[in-house]
Design a protein around this nucleic acid. Structure first.
Length: 269
DNA sequence: ACTATTTCCTGGATGC
DNA sequence: TGCATCCAGGAAATAG
């Protein structure tokens, strides 16, 4: 389930391999729910465009393009199971391949997404912005301000992309554990000192996960098809019933905002 | 204006 | 062994 560290890893890999290449042709499958822009528009913008760079914005992969109609962007959201694969032409198409971009270098960039929660979109210009703050660099006062007056569980607030863009279920749970905060506590009841600790925890967890190449839970792989290793460092996520690595208490699971939430009932207050 | 819940979707795990 | 059921969750849509 790609969150910020996984998307960062994939975007870096795509940029390293594909920056400067040119898209010569595009094939798009017939699953319209994946497309936030009409298929014809995506094909028109991508075909002939030069790839300036791939980068991450929130959980989105952004490809800056120099297209026939001027600057444009290809926005890829991986959803739950989306993958971007760089392949040699002629390789058999993986099941659930929804878009193939043929490249001047004779390789192909393929978007594969079995569960189809991903989204593909093109935009004019180079001005795509995430709806919320960038978690890796948000400053203390901005971070604290995000939670002011919010009568919702802190876990829900962390997952709200219009507050912080990029934090998902894994890293929300891991950050709350490190900060010693129970996921169900109301955001507005959390002290300034605790929020400062939470910001540090979020930034440490994300930095460590990026350094490890992300977390490979089910079938996540980066642009080279390599797995990440941060799942080996998870302290609570999917460790229900196992002992807390700090205090030995049994890790608990509850459901918040329809999401599994894992925490240590002794370490987290 | 907010917050909570439901919906979309498939593959892998589990249960009988 | 095989079939049915459950579960995973990002974010948009809907409900309260």
């Amino acid at each position: 389930m790609p969150e910020l560290p996984e998307v960062e890893t994939i975007a870096r890999g795509l940029n390293k391999r594909l920056a400067g290449d040119r898209i010569t042709d595009v094939w798009i499958g017939n699953k319209p729910n994946l497309l936030k822009s009409p298929a014809r528009k995506i094909a028109r913008v991508l075909t002939g465009a030069r790839i300036e760079c791939f980068r991450r914005v929130g959980k989105h992969i952004v490809c800056d393009l120099d297209s026939a109609t001027g600057p444009a962007q290809w926005i890829i959201h991986l959803g739950m199971t989306g993958r971007c694969a760089v392949s040699e032409p002629g390789h058999v198409l993986a099941p659930h391949t929804h878009l193939v971009a043929m490249l001047e270098s004779h390789r192909e960039m393929r978007f594969v997404d079995p569960r189809r929660f991903g989204k593909l979109q093109v935009l004019a210009g180079h001005s795509f912005r995430a709806p919320g703050q960038e978690p890796t660099t948000v400053d203390e006062e901005t971070f604290i301000q995000l939670f002011k007056g919010r009568n919702t569980p802190i876990k829900s607030a962390l997952l709200n992309q219009s507050l912080l863009s990029g934090v998902g279920n894994i890293y929300a749970d891991e950050s709350l554990f490190r900060a010693g905060i129970r996921p169900r506590r109301k955001a507005l009841r959390i002290s300034r000192a605790e929020l400062l600790a939470l910001r540090v925890a979020v930034q440490q967890v994300l930095a460590e996960a990026i350094a490890a190449g992300g977390s490979s839970i089910n079938d996540y792989v980066d642009a080279n098809g390599d797995e990440g290793f941060f799942q080996l460092q998870h302290r609570v996520y999917q460790r229900t019933g196992e002992p807390c690595l700090v205090c030995g208490a049994v890790i608990a699971r509850t459901v918040i905002a329809g999401r599994s939430s894992h925490y240590c009932p002794r370490c987290q207050k």
